[in-house]
């Protein structure tokens, strides 16, 4: 095992940039994705029929196709189409539309929105009707019922599943190395190509991911513990893969 390349300033910079990009992608897509998930879940439960159908179709397509295919579709497919629009290259948003980070964040946001939206839909549907009626009886507006009662209760029901989704999101981030975005894996690929060392960079990245998974699990566990009304549950260390929505029932 030869780790002498770690001394090299260039490689350190690659790794740090990769690490920062990885974290950023995780944070941006987690926040955007969870907001989208609430919208998708509500659209399916309460939206007018066309909107509910649209949300359902979105969920089926995003959950039924590989994330890598989606990433290529948005980056190469949609990205190239946008390129062809006359005048767009002079517009102020072009630097964003050219950036692979944008497409990575977009794809992950949509993906989290679909998977977590399905989880949330199950949870929202399982909040007893009586609790919402109680809120109305106390004179809350429908929005207040939603933001103070319905949504928090639903999150309470499926928080472990949602935190599991976040760990799965972390593990999807290396896919962006295929669209030439400098994440940790891309940094490792560059180091591998330049030093001809196959294992060491990849092992390092695997170690970093292992550590990140552990840290994220601990952080999310604290979130769960401090969420009002959560029973501290004994949980297994890692989530199993994307759970069926029904796992959110109790």
């Amino acid at each position: 095992m030869d780790f002498s390349w770690l001394q090299d300033g260039f490689y350190q910079e690659y790794l740090i940039e990769g690490f920062i990009n990885t974290l950023w992608l995780l944070v941006v897509s987690a926040i955007g994705g969870l907001m989208l998930a609430v919208a998708v879940a509500m659209a399916r439960l309460k939206g007018p029929r066309p909107l509910a159908m649209l949300a359902k179709g979105f969920t089926i397509v995003m959950r039924g196709t590989p994330l890598l295919v989606q990433l290529f579709f948005f980056y190469y497919g949609v990205g190239r189409l946008l390129e062809g629009i006359p005048g767009i290259q002079d517009s102020p948003i072009w630097p964003i539309l050219r950036d692979p980070f944008f497409y990575g964040a977009l794809t992950f946001t949509l993906s989290v929105g679909a998977y977590s939206g399905e989880v949330l839909r199950g949870a929202l549907a399982n909040v007893p009707q009586g609790e919402r009626e109680a809120g109305r009886a106390f004179g809350m507006s429908p929005f207040q019922v939603f933001s103070r009662l319905w949504l928090p209760r639903a999150i309470q029901l499926c928080l472990p599943t949602l935190t599991g989704e976040m760990i799965l999101l972390l593990k999807s981030v290396p896919l962006v190395s295929t669209i030439a975005l400098m994440d940790l894996l891309q940094a490792a690929n560059i180091i591998r190509d330049e030093t001809f060392l196959v294992y060491e960079p990849l092992m390092l990245i695997a170690g970093i991911y292992l550590a990140m998974t552990v840290v994220l699990t601990l952080v999310l566990r604290q979130v769960e513990r401090h969420f009002p009304g959560m029973q501290p549950t004994r949980r297994r260390w890692l989530p199993s893969r994307h759970m069926e929505p029904s796992s959110c029932k109790d």
């Binding site: 290396p174 894996l185 196959v198 990849l202 695997a206 998974t213």
Partner: peptide, 16 residues
């Protein structure tokens, strides 16, 4: 260990 490391990374690592 397998569940904590991203699949893509594992696939590349195991390939080599």
């Amino acid at each position: 260990a397998v569940r904590a490391v991203p699949e893509l990374l594992l696939i590349i690592l195991l390939y080599y």
